[in-house]
């Protein structure tokens, strides 16, 4: 069952990474990237590295996603009111 868990996690990682690069709209790509960071935290937990998982959960899922969403909002507001 561990192997099934690992395989499913690996497939989800690869699929979300590919969709992040291939998504037609930018906000969709950013949300998929946040999901990718979360799956990375699960992968670190499976690799017996909880300290890296801690950093990835704080930075990958929280901080980077908020930074990207903020930049996206600023660019969109500027485009609406040039």
């Amino acid at each position: 069952m561990t192997l099934a868990f690992d395989l499913l996690l690996a497939l989800a990682l690869l699929w979300s990474a590919w969709r992040t690069l291939a998504a037609p709209r930018l906000d969709r790509a950013i949300v998929l990237f946040i999901a990718f960071g979360l799956l990375m935290a699960l992968a670190w937990a499976r690799l017996a590295a909880p300290d890296i998982g801690l950093a990835e959960a704080a930075i990958g899922a929280g901080l980077t996603g908020a930074l990207l969403l903020d930049a996206y909002g600023v660019l969109q507001r500027r485009r609406d009111r040039p």
Partner: peptide
């Protein structure tokens, strides 16, 4: 696109 390039860099 620069934002998408930043995403690719992170991946």
């Amino acid at each position: 696109h620069l934002l998408r390039r930043i995403l690719a860099f992170n991946l």
